[in-house]
Each structure stands twice: as structure tokens, then as C-alpha cells.
Design a protein around this nucleic acid. Structure first.
Lengths: 143, 143
DNA sequence: CTTGACCTTACCACCGCTGGAACCTTTATG
DNA sequence: CATAAAGGTTCCAGCGGTGGTAAGGTCAAG
């Protein structure tokens, strides 16, 4: 199985597989004489694992730990659960920030006429005059 | 007013102000003989505008357009509103993805014993067996 | 034998900053 | 007046996870 087939089978792009190998998330694949990477079903399973974890928003660092736990037969489900719980709280933070943004923005949009005239509460708000707005969390950093 | 004072007054870090200048989001500031950047109140207002827009999650590109509209006396509030509406839909997409992630993860966490034993539905799910999960949107890309 | 689809490495770019290094200027103090 | 701290300056690197490109090597089919 070469990288393209592994990509197909796992849902992880070939390019990303190389990146994962480069960063040590997965071990370096074996090679054919011509230098092509070779993958087995086991590797595809690992890639699928990573793919699914990424879909759930886990960071590379978290995935590193999840892979360790997955491969460790003497793991405790406690540890896995703890990791997942922490991740949920990260998601919650992001959600809270996005919701705050949306709330504020929706409020502004609701009060904007949206006509030919230049008067616009949205720009007025951005321009400062630090009005009473549901400010909640302040920093952006919601990446 | 030097960059540190402008940063203080606007809420945008000095380093970030230089970055904005470099990328052309704001015009290059004037300089003292010694090469220090000089800012006026007008510039601080612009920086505050940008800061606030970032807090609402607008992209640099959006902010570029917002600044143009802000400085254009013959703008229409229609255009501003449209821009804001599009941004709300972007926020909605991100929210939907995060919510889907959280829902799935919460479900998994709820079914994990979290004890000393290794058995763990969270890892089982990640390992594939593509079970019936509220999959909704698939890709991560929630940045 | 050629074509074209795949593979390889290696690089730059993106988002929106942030940190650090190495150096220069201003300000406060002894 | 010398010095040290607290600013400023530039440039380079990095985050995650690709996307794109170039310039090549390899493989299977026609």
C-alpha cells in the first residue's frame, strides 16, 4: 500500500500523512526500493484514529497522548476521560467567545438600517465610544 | 506619542501595530529623527477600531474593507450591514462545527466509565468501526 | 516507447500574531 | 556626566495544518 492508497483508505491526505511523519506523530513508514512509502492496514487504522480525533478538534499534542493511551494496554479509562473532559472545556471556551461575538454583532446588525445612507451603528460601535455592550470575554484568539 | 503609548491607548500591542503597518492595514507611521514611530489621536482611533473589529472576529481582509467604508463618507450602511451579515454566517458555521464536536465528545465521555480499567468507548470510537455518531459536518478546519 | 498518473523531496505561503535576538535611543538615577 | 533600565528598532522563527509549486523519479497501460 503506497501513500495515496493509505490516504484514500484513512481519509487523511497524502500531504498530511507526510507532515504527520515529519513531526513524529506517526513513525516513519517503510520504503520500497524506489523510495515509496509503504503502509499496512495497521498504519491505516492509526491514521483513521488521528483523522477522527482531528474531527473532534483535538490538538496534535492531545492526539499524541491519545495515541499513547490507545497503544498502552495498561491504560486506565480514567486518563482518557480526563483528557476528553479538558478538551470539552476548551471547546466550551471557544463556543463562549463565538457566541459573544455573534450576540454583539447580531445586535448591531439589527439596529442598522441597511439603506443608502451612510449612518451605521455597526461602524459607530467599532469606532469606539465604548458603549454598553455584552462584552464578556475580550480577547479574540479563538483559533 | 510613541508606539508604546499608542498601544496602551488603543489596546493593540506594539508588536501587533508594527505587524499591521507591515501588512498595510494601517499606513506607515511618521518617524522621529531617531527613527521612532509617531502616532496621533487619529491613529489611535483607527487602532481601536481594528481592535474592536478583531474582538468581533472579523478577518484582516474584512477589517480592511470596514476601514475603507468607515473612512468613506459616501458609504451606504447597506454595504456595512451586508459585510456584517456574511461574518455572522461565518461565525454560525464555526459554532455549528464546535457544537457538533462537543456533542459527540460529550456523548462519548458520558459513556466512559473513567475507572482503573482500560476499556474506553472514547478510544473505541476514535479507533473507527465507524459507528452511528452525530457526524454532521466532517472536516475539522475550525480555525 | 510514450504517456500520464502517481510518487519523491524541498521549498514558500497562509492566518494573526508572538517571542526572541541584537542593537539603538531616551530617561532616570548616583 | 556616566550608566543602567526601559523603551524603541529590525529581522528571523514559529504555531497547525495544510495548499501550492517545482523538478524530478517510477510505474502501469496503450
Amino acid at each position: 500500500m503506497n501513500i495515496g492508497q493509505a490516504a484514500q483508505a484513512s481519509g487523511v491526505q497524502a500531504k498530511t500523512i507526510r507532515y504527520y511523519e515529519e513531526t513524529g506523530l506517526i513513525p516513519a513508514a517503510g520504503r520500497t526500493e524506489a523510495g515509496y512509502r509503504v503502509y499496512a492496514h495497521k498504519d491505516v487504522n492509526t491514521l483513521r484514529f488521528i483523522h477522527r480525533a482531528r474531527q473532534l478538534g483535538f490538538s496534535m499534542e492531545d492526539i499524541r497522548r491519545l495515541l499513547e493511551l490507545w497503544q498502552d494496554d495498561s491504560r486506565t479509562s480514567m486518563k482518557v476521560k480526563a483528557l476528553a473532559r479538558v478538551h470539552i472545556s476548551v471547546l466550551d471556551e471557544k463556543l463562549a467567545k463565538l457566541k459573544a461575538m455573534k450576540r454583539t454583532l447580531q445586535h448591531l446588525v439589527d439596529h442598522c438600517e441597511g439603506d443608502e445612507r451612510p449612518d451605521c451603528p455597526i461602524l459607530d460601535d467599532l469606532a469606539g465610544e465604548d458603549t454598553e455592550l455584552p462584552r464578556g470575554q475580550v480577547g479574540p484568539r479563538f483559533n
